[in-house]
Structure formats: structure tokens, C-alpha cells
């Protein structure tokens, strides 16, 4: 579904991604793990058009999407839940969600989509008219997930959804993630919380210093001596 080939991305003169290749198949949950500054966020931003890669290409559903503007990429069906959710804090919860359905073709269906989001997260319905800045970290994450869902994505990318959240909340969020996946949405998950990320993943990639150094089934990660030592602390 999503194929990333030999991607190199720079910030000015600093190279952040080195020859990164990645494949996400339909209805999969793919986890992309790695430490801080490994290039995980950069990779997501390169895929969704916020940063232009210097070389390499990104294909989505058989068509190249690198070089397109972010709004075109969203219309193709890729959406991103950014780190911390980044809701529009001065808008109400409902307005935030409606903004998710901004792309032209989806705008008309926003009412139906809204009902679905409220079905997923009844919590958001209760706070429909509240300003997003009154929400807690976990609620913001939910709101951002809902906002992405509004855009009718085929592939949804999550940037560290567990960051800064209480363990109970993390569990709930990962639960919603799996529910989303069961609805037929493919998921690319970026996480530092390796244990959780591997638990729900079909396959995983390990990114270090801008390079993919390991890929495969979660079991392979759990058995790998280096991963155990460096990331799992066992």
C-alpha cells in the first residue's frame, strides 16, 4: 500500500534520513521504533509532504506521492496524528473534528463521520462544545485521532501517541488504535515505547541515526540480543 524507497532527507546540510526503505501492506499495523532523534518524525513528515526528501520516492496505492503538497496527500488517504495531538486549542472539540473533514469531497459527509467518531470516543461527544485547550493530554490525543479519522484515511500514521500519558491512558489509546485497524484502516505507528508498539504490530522497523537497522516480525525484535539490551533493558 505504502512503499518508501531509498529516502534521503536533509535539514539544511544535515542529513536526517539515510537510504530509508519501508513497506506497509493493506490492513497491517506497522510499528516504527527507535530512540530520540532517530529520524522517526522526519520520516513521517517526509511521507505526508511536510518535508521534501532530497532523493528516493514514496508510493501510495501504486502512485508516487512525493513532491505533492500535504493537502493533496491527505486527499489520497494518508493522514497523520502529530505528536501531542496538536489540536486547535482555541476551537471547540466539535470544530476541531469538523476541520478534519476539510478536504473537498469529504466535507459533505462530515455529519456521518462525526457520529462515527463519537461512537468511538463517547468521551468527545460529552465535551463537544468545550474548547480544546481545556482537554487533558490523553483527551487531546483522542481528539487528534478523531480529527484524522474524519478525513476518511486509508492509512493513518501516529507520531508517538503514548508520549507523556499515564499507563492506563496508553492502554486505552492502543485499544482504539486496534479498533481503528479492525475497521480497515492501515496503521503506521511511531513509538519510543517499544514494548507496547511491538505488542500490537504485524511487523516492525527499527530506526537508528536515520537508518533502518532491523525489520521483521515482532518476535524477531524480542529475540534480538541488541534490541533486548539497548531498548528493552533485559
Amino acid at each position: 500500500m505504502l512503499v518508501v524507497n531509498n529516502l534521503d532527507t536533509f535539514y539544511g546540510k544535515t542529513q536526517a534520513l539515510w537510504n530509508v526503505s519501508l513497506r506497509v501492506d493493506e490492513k497491517e499495523i506497522i510499528s516504527l521504533v527507535g530512540a530520540n532523534e532517530a529520524g522517526k518524525t522526519t520520516l513521517l513528515k517526509s511521507i505526508c509532504g511536510l518535508i521534501r526528501p532530497a532523493s528516493g520516492n514514496v508510493e501510495f496505492l501504486g502512485k508516487r506521492v512525493d513532491g505533492l503538497t500535504p493537502d493533496c496527500i491527505v486527499e489520497r488517504g494518508i493522514s497523520l496524528v502529530p505528536e501531542g495531538g496538536k489540536p486547535f486549542t482555541e476551537m471547540t472539540v466539535r470544530e476541531n473534528l469538523e476541520m478534519g473533514a476539510y478536504p473537498y469531497k469529504i466535507w459533505k459527509e462530515r455529519q456521518a463521520r462525526l457520529e462515527q467518531v463519537y461512537h468511538f470516543f463517547p468521551y468527545l461527544k460529552a465535551r463537544e462544545r468545550q474548547l480544546a485547550k481545556t482537554l487533558s493530554g490523553g483527551e487531546r490525543q483522542m481528539l487528534a485521532m478523531g480529527r484524522s479519522y474524519m478525513a476518511r484515511p486509508k492509512l493513518c500514521m501516529f507520531d508517538e501517541p503514548s508520549y507523556g500519558l499515564a499507563p492506563l491512558m496508553v492502554k486505552e489509546l492502543f485499544g482504539s488504535l486496534v479498533t481503528m485497524n479492525e475497521q480497515g484502516i492501515t496503521i503506521l505507528l511511531v513509538e519510543q515505547n517499544i514494548r507496547h508498539a511491538l505488542e500490537i504490530a504485524d511487523r516492525a522497523y527499527l530506526l537508528e541515526n536515520g537508518r533502518v537497522i532491523l525489520e521483521g516480525a515482532p518476535e524477531r525484535f524480542l529475540q534480538n540480543g541488541y534490541v533486548k539490551k539497548a531498548y528493552l533493558g533485559i
Binding site: F88, T89, Y102
Partner: peptide
Amino acid sequence: SKFGLALRSIGEQEEAAAHIGIGV
């Protein structure tokens, strides 16, 4: 209109506005 909301979202979080599909 939805453009009014979109303009407000640009004022708040331009990057978030871009990746939810607004041609900023």
C-alpha cells in the same frame, strides 16, 4: 464557512492545518 474555520486553524497551528488537508 469551513474556510473561516480553516483560517483560524492556520492562526493556531499552521503545520497541523497543513497535514489535515488544508491548502494553507
